[in-house]
Design a protein around this nucleic acid. Structure first.
Lengths: 189, 189
DNA sequence: GAGACTGTGAAGAAAATATTTAACAAATTG
DNA sequence: CAATTTGTTAAATATTTTCTTCACAGTCTC
């Protein structure tokens, strides 16, 4: 229809549109403590669909072990999964494209860990403070400081329990009843 | 009452209880892309109350510029604020001890930025894809890929709008009506 | 089972980040 | 207004993290 030079330009334009998306995804994933290049990898899989390690390597111009570890990290965050192309030997990987699920997977995991870690730390600190408070020997000023810390901690416990319930409400989908997802709607403004 | 050696041991025990809390806070802040030592700084302010830069420096055994930049970062995250001790010349800083406010400040800011960044990226990518789709010359296969990306993007837009509403509901306190904070209660199990 | 291919671990190189020291600018005190 | 103190910037250094090259183990193919 038209000469191939023009088609290259259109192709170029398509790729640059993809890059805009990829970069902005990478930037925001950066905020979550995901390294920039791993974020770029996710973004690439997001716009390109499922990929093999070699396809990633070629697309990003990086080494294969990098891709391997990058994909692993994304799997740990539950935002990338293994798939397979039928008949093919190479392993393929697919990015979670549904950001609602991305949100759920990512923060659920993050927050569950936070709750677990901090509640157990609070528990052992609390015991130690109790021992101190109940001892005969310790000075009153020390005891008072111990009690003050317990007061702060008891506030925090309330928070972690709340965070646990938030996680639950995400997992059960309850949160999405309270804050509903707008429906797909042609006449949406 | 008892000799000072014993008191040192109790003091030691109190400090170690604090350290348990500090470390676990630092570890979880690490998950949010906050560097470990900045997390430790936050944790220290959390258990120690308001501090001057010199007190931080002494407590953590680090340089003053480190404290200065650390505090700045925490202020950017809205989890530390300036205060003053009356009559005193030195500036003091205080950590947000209420984790509900911590949660609100931190994620509100993070997510608002995410929504802004990505929606504007999607907008410009979308326009570019539109140009491509409406052009006479571009090959059908390219147009089809452009349309496919638009389909994915339109799903994402729904997500970002939802995330924006989640932020709102945190800011207005609505979320805490849906998922209530347990009341302070002596006979709580 | 030999040969080819895929994915990952280890070690070292390169790059990015954090931290300190030194210098300075602003503010406060006497 | 000189002297002191506080907080920050800039440059140098140290440390950590990331990335690559190389090597190898497991799998599939013929």
């Amino acid at each position: 229809m038209t000469d191939s030079h023009h088609q290259d330009e259109w192709r170029e334009s398509l790729e640059s549109a993809k890059d805009i998306i990829i970069d902005s995804l990478a930037e925001t994933m950066d905020l979550y403590g995901v390294t920039r290049s791993v974020g770029t990898l996710y973004g690439t899989m997001y716009v390109e669909g499922d990929m093999t390690l070699d396809e990633m390597r070629e697309k990003l111009g990086m080494s294969k072990p990098s891709m391997s570890t990058g994909v692993r990290k994304l799997q740990e965050f539950n935002v990338v999964k293994k798939t397979h192309r039928r008949g093919k030997r190479k392993q393929t990987y697919v990015a979670e494209k549904d950001f609602f699920r991305f949100f759920s997977n990512f923060f659920t995991q993050q927050w569950e860990r936070e709750v677990r870690t901090n509640l157990s730390a609070i528990e052992s600190a609390w015991e130690q403070l109790d021992m101190l408070i109940q001892s005969e020997e310790a000075e009153d000023s020390i005891k008072e400081e111990a009690r003050e810390i317990q007061r702060i901690l008891s506030q925090s416990i309330k928070y972690y329990k709340w965070l646990g319930r938030l996680v639950e409400s995400i997992e059960t989908g309850e949160l999405f009843k309270y804050i509903p997802v707008e429906e797909d709607d042609e006449k949406e403004r």
